[in-house]
């Protein structure tokens, strides 16, 4: 087996303990919360017999370690229980919303990655120039804009004034444009800055200076030695934001009436749908673990020095 394969296998195996850790933490966090979930379900006036029956039904009368094992088993098979609010399995609810979140998150990340890296490269290669300063000022302002305000601005200009794009909801590719633009502003600014910094750092490195002294063509130096090396840092940022955005964008989804995980979470919190909230939190954690896995493997492919 190649070194890379060994790394990937090791890294995938590491997912399991992380996952169990997360589930364990959430299980016990919920257990130490004050209040009894059965009271919540049955209502304040419920008789002790009903409470006992409910406890038996949910397995809450069993010892805690048994409950824990049971819970672990069901979560690992993606069984998050049934929503108090809609009486549908939590996983079904999540899966009906998750594709929307994926579409929004990936379009936002595509915008952020392409525009961010392009801006970062242009500004680093013209360091100190007007373009460079413009990029720095733009990204500083852009990243500081609250997303709800940016969202409203976009709706005002493109939907209300110009009437060329829908203001909210889903249904066509055009619906994705405004929310993904709004959502991309933070990752875009970070990616642009990190790209710029890493390129500047790489440019001053000895191996790049040597490549110049050896008379390699500038294009080749930039692509093979500067940009490629700089991307190592950028990938970390891309991975982080991909994870964050896949976990749902509460504000953006609300502003644009986008039915994603973020909205589902807000709705569930409003309805005190604890089973649903718990399921969404674990699901988001799983997404994060998965994205991290992809990032680490990509990282290792680009940089052979990475060790587990």
């Amino acid at each position: 087996m190649g070194v890379l394969t060994v790394y990937i296998v090791k890294r995938v195996l590491l997912v399991l303990p992380t996952l169990i850790g997360v589930i364990t933490m959430i299980f016990f966090l919920v257990r130490i919360l004050p209040g009894d979930p059965t009271h919540l379900l049955a209502g304040e006036q419920a008789s002790p017999e009903i409470i006992e029956r409910l406890k038996a039904e949910f397995g809450l009368d069993r010892p805690i370690y048994e409950q824990y094992i049971l819970y672990l088993k069901s979560v690992l098979t993606l069984d998050f229980g049934t929503s108090y609010r809609t009486y549908t399995p939590v996983i079904v609810e999540i899966m009906s919303r998750f594709p929307n979140t994926v579409i929004l998150a990936l379009s936002a990340m595509l915008i952020a990655i392409f525009a961010g890296i392009a801006l970062g490269i242009v500004s680093a290669l013209r360091v100190g120039s007007v373009i460079d300063r413009a990029v720095i000022i733009f990204t500083s302002i852009y990243v500081s804009m609250p997303v709800f305000w940016l969202g409203l601005l976009l709706i005002y200009f493109f939907a209300v004034q110009l009437k060329i794009l829908p203001a909210g909801g889903i249904g066509s590719p055009a619906h994705v444009i405004l929310p993904s633009l709004a959502l991309s502003h933070t990752p875009l600014s970070y990616i642009a800055r990190i790209t710029r910094e890493s390129i500047l750092e790489t440019l001053s490195q000895e191996h790049v200076r040597l490549a110049i002294a050896r008379g390699l063509p500038l294009r080749s130096i930039l692509i093979n030695h500067v940009i490629r090396n700089s991307l190592i840092n950028v990938i970390t940022v891309i991975g982080y934001f991909t994870g964050v955005l896949l976990g749902g964008a509460v504000v953006t989804e609300t502003v644009f009436a986008w039915p994603g995980i973020g909205r589902l979470l807000i709705e569930s919190i409003a309805a005190r749908d604890y089973i649903m909230i718990q399921g969404i939190v674990i699901f988001i954690a799983m997404i994060f673990i998965f994205v991290n896995l992809i990032v680490d493997i990509t990282y290792r492919i680009i940089d052979p020095r990475v060790r587990l």
Binding site: A211, H225, I232, P304, R305
Partner: peptide, 11 residues
């Protein structure tokens, strides 16, 4: 310095 003169991520 031979240690910094080669690109660390290319063989």
């Amino acid at each position: 310095n031979p240690s910094t003169a080669l690109n660390p991520i290319l063989n």
